[in-house]
Design a protein around this nucleic acid. Structure first.
Lengths: 100, 100
DNA sequence: CCCTCATATAGACGGTTATCAATATGTATT
DNA sequence: AATACATATTGATAACCGTCTATATGAGGG
């Protein structure tokens, strides 16, 4: 994963409403109208957020009749978990009074 | 952690340059001048990013003489790891042809 | 067919942000 | 003190983003 790909995913998660949607979808599959009920935003704004979430791959959509069912893409989140599994090494650089 | 707190942290990580800095600090402690060498941005821009990283708590700074040593705050990243450890339940909502 | 409900799109607006050049501050070295 | 180096701050600018209203699209139901 490139830095750009990573920062793009974090950008998707950098909005409070989208985090709330993700949390809601964590426990159950939901349609847009149900999400809308619990959010304090207009319908077009929700549609905008859901598009961003789906485009990123973090959420998947399935059209069922009039409704669209949204659901977490857990594969993506498993990958994200790995991102934070880095190992930190306490190397001291810039010591000996020089940075060159 | 509230949704706002979470999205604020993701916002910090939503910039490609800051992701690159985080990655660089993953393996070793570095001063600003060393970070600057490997990045294609001006010194004031780096200073701006380092302030955002430090304010968020993801990175800590330590002034040593002329230099500022930056280092990952691994406690924060351990916490972030947990965020992605949710359990997904495949509840189907919106079934039976109604959303009400 | 018309009407209603669910969702998407278009366009406008205000606020935020990343970037830079210029400058300031602070710290060592000579 | 004077100079050089490391970092921070200021102010300006351009691009981006979240939000809304208005409108369009699409799918059932009567």
């Amino acid at each position: 994963m490139t830095n750009k790909e990573l920062s793009d995913i974090f950008k998707v998660l950098s909005d409070e409403t989208r985090v709330q949607v993700i949390k809601m979808l964590t426990t159950e599959k939901l349609c847009a109208c149900q999400l809308l009920k619990q959010l304090k935003i207009s319908q077009p704004t929700l549609s905008h957020h859901m598009r961003i979430l789906c485009d990123s791959g973090l959420v998947t959509a399935e059209k069922v009749g009039k409704w669209v069912h949204y659901q977490i893409n857990s594969q993506m989140f498993d990958q994200m978990k790995l991102i934070f599994n880095f190992t930190k090494i306490d190397n001291i650089v810039c010591d000996k009074g020089t940075c060159r």
